[in-house]
Structure formats: structure tokens, C-alpha cells
Amino acid sequence: MSGMRRNRIKWPLSRQRTIQLISAALVNGYIAGFQKGRIFTGGTKAVCVPVLNCYSCPGALGACPIGALQTAVGGVKHHFPFYVLGLLMLFGVLLGRAVCGLLCPFGLVQDLLHKIPSPKVRVPKGLDRPARGIKYVVLLVFVILLPAFAVTETRVTPPYFCQYICPAGTLGGGIPLMLADPALRQLAGWLFNWKVLVLVVIAAASVLIHRPFCRYLCPLGAFYALFNRFSFFQMSLDAHKCVGCGACERVCPMAVEVTKDINSPECIRCGACQTACPTGAIAGPLKKQSPR
């Protein structure tokens, strides 16, 4: 555990933060929804957004890909999800986990929570590495296998990930709708309390650990991680310029071994390593290599 750190928000905002804010505003652009306590019902909701953003968020203009995937797999038809899987693959091949680092509103929330001054925790490698595998289990079990095979009497299976785990749904959908609609508030019971507890635990963990949900639990991050090594958005390290100072690895929010595996499945393309590199040896989507 390192000492108390002050991670102030810098002004002007970094490129990463600017892109994150624009993305959050674009995917949740239906402002009237927050005032009325209703969700958007336009045709753009037939298209999945690349990020984890609940379609029951009053501002959401598109569909959540993880929610849509569970609906396709666990719906009445129980079919192979060509459309949603195709969109997810498209986002994965084009952007990889740049979606997590640059576009995801829940990633932005975790980044901002981590700015709160507190002792910061560096999870030991022996615990961190196996724990990263949990997100693949969440993807396989909660998003695919349970919706596909845990069939109920109605033949429609609930979206297990959304129902029991997803903190983005509670933050973006549950809480704003409950605040705006007294009728919904009356229906809230143990499940809502459970979901708020999950959200609070993840929020508290985000203050101490950088992006714990992205690292250990997010099934969408797990899916995009599969494409990170060959997506169009790649990072590169110029070995001739690298002086091996380790500055990049010290600042990496995802604890990637930058000098050994720069396009690791865990790299979210946030650009922190590029900013920290004293010799400009790292290139990526936000910044090209500096001339020597």
C-alpha cells in the first residue's frame, strides 16, 4: 500500500478525459429523460453502443451490448446472436480495449473516484493475475451460459449479469429512475438493495484501486481483451529510445508490464505510459512517438 496521494484533476483536461466526457455525453444525450424519469424510445436503440451503458438509463440513446447479448441468448427464441456478436466483434477489432480507456462512462466514473485523496493500493501480482480471470468467468457464466441454459417456465431467462452484478445499470438506470418515479421506488426491494451494495463496494474499491471493475469483473472488457493484440488501435514501443527507467509501468492504471507486453489484453489505451515516458518511446492512438 502506498501513502496518501493527491490525484487532482488537471486543467486543461487531458485528451483521454476530454474524449471520455464527450463519449459519456453522446451515449447519454437524451437529457429530457432525466427530467421526466423516462427512457428514450427512438430507433437508435436498435444499435448497441460499444460501452457498458444501461439501456434503462434515462439518457441512453443506444442499447447496452451486454444486455442485448443476454436478451438474444436468453430470449424466447434462444438463438445465436449474429447481430449483437457482429457489433461486438466490430468494436473489438476496430478499437480493442480503447473502448474501456477512452469511451466507457463507467470507466470514467472509476477514474474520477480514484482521484479522491486516499491511500492507494497496489494489488500484489500473485493476487492480481488470477483475479483478472474472473471477468472471463463472468462473461462465460453470467452473460452466455446461464441465459442460454438456465431456462425458466416462461422460456425467457433473466439477464443474470444485469440483474445481480452490473453496477453501471444501478448507477445509470436504477438510481435516476427511482429518484424520478415514486411508483418505481415503491417496487424496490431486496434486489435493489443488493445492487446498491454492489455499486457501493465497487465505488469504494475504485477509490483505493484503479479501475477494479474493469480489471476483475467487466464482461465487456473481457470480450474486447480477446481482440487487444490485433485491433486497429495498437500501442508500440521503440526499443532504441527506451531507457528502461520503468516510469511507464509505475503509472499504468492497469498494471501492464509495458516494456514486456505493451499490447497486453489488459491495456486500455489510456495513454498514461506515453505521457510518463521521458524519451517519447511509446506511440499509441492518442500520441505518436516523439522524434529523438
Partner: peptide, 21 residues
């Protein structure tokens, strides 16, 4: 027409997602 299935789900409040079940 799978996009219509996505649309149909996304334009209704997902009770599971918001924690009502």
C-alpha cells in the same frame, strides 16, 4: 431482424437491470 429484438428490449425499462427484478 435481430435488431428489432434489441430495439424491443431497449425501449422498455429493464426491471432486472434497475434492480426491481
Amino acid at each position: 431482424q435481430e435488431h428489432l429484438e434489441v430495439l424491443g428490449k431497449a425501449v422498455r425499462i429493464c426491471l432486472e437491470c434497475v434492480g426491481i427484478g
